[in-house]
């Protein structure tokens, strides 16, 4: 149980400060994850805040069969997809065309990704299929296993395994094109 989840347990037991620990633990990673999906930092912050609020409003929806981080990322991903669908439906600016605040994004990236190699790997993820990128991001940057990734993207483990295989193949092509050859399989 990580610090975020233990904080949430304390919050559920009546300790209000426990929720601050939850936000401290997941705040940056969650926003960065959502930003990868919506490509708009302000929207990503909104979605992340809504996701945290969801933990307060519906505490019983979080079941013990997954980690809090998995549940939180799952909620955030759904909200992000809802946003993207709504934007597409209303003819809003497509997420590929939105501009992030680059300084903020870089700052956020620095807090989530600590080494240059990971940063270049993350940059390569932006060039492959969105779903592939999400799967690989969750695995290699958020440290989730196949089962947890499956819970976040609402697919079964077998589908996630196949996705990872294809994602790695796609990423390999990009990395080779970029001249990065020191990656692990």
């Amino acid at each position: 149980m990580d610090i975020g989840e233990s904080g949430y347990r304390r919050y559920l037991d009546g300790d209000q400060s426990g929720f601050d620990d939850v936000m401290n633990a997941y705040h940056d990673n969650l926003i960065y994850f959502v930003d990868d999906l919506v490509h708009n930092l302000t929207v990503a912050e909104d979605i992340a805040a809504d996701s945290f609020a969801e933990l307060i409003i519906h505490p019983k929806r979080f079941k013990a069969d997954s980690s809090l981080k998995t549940y939180l990322f799952s909620v955030a991903r759904h909200k992000a997809l809802d946003y993207i669908r709504a934007e597409a439906h209303h003819g809003g600016v497509g997420y590929d065309e939105t501009l992030d605040d680059e300084a903020d994004t870089t700052s956020l990236e620095n807090s989530v990704i600590h080494d240059e190699r990971s940063r270049r790997l993350h940059a390569a993820l932006t060039q492959i299929n969105k779903e592939y990128a999400t799967v690989l991001y969750l695995m290699y940057f958020e440290g989730m296993d196949v089962r947890e990734v499956a819970m976040v993207i609402k697919k079964n483990s077998r589908q996630v395994t196949n996705l990872i295989y294809r994602a790695k193949a796609a990423l390999k092509v990009v990395l080779e094109r970029e001249g990065l050859t020191d990656y692990d399989e």
Binding site: M23, N24, H27, L41, E45, F52, A53, I56, I57, D101
Partner: peptide
Amino acid sequence: MMNSEEFRRSVYERAAEYKAERQ
């Protein structure tokens, strides 16, 4: 981008707002 304190306040405000709406 909001700082941590602003973000925390935003979360609590949203939660209160959603709860009121739900009620």
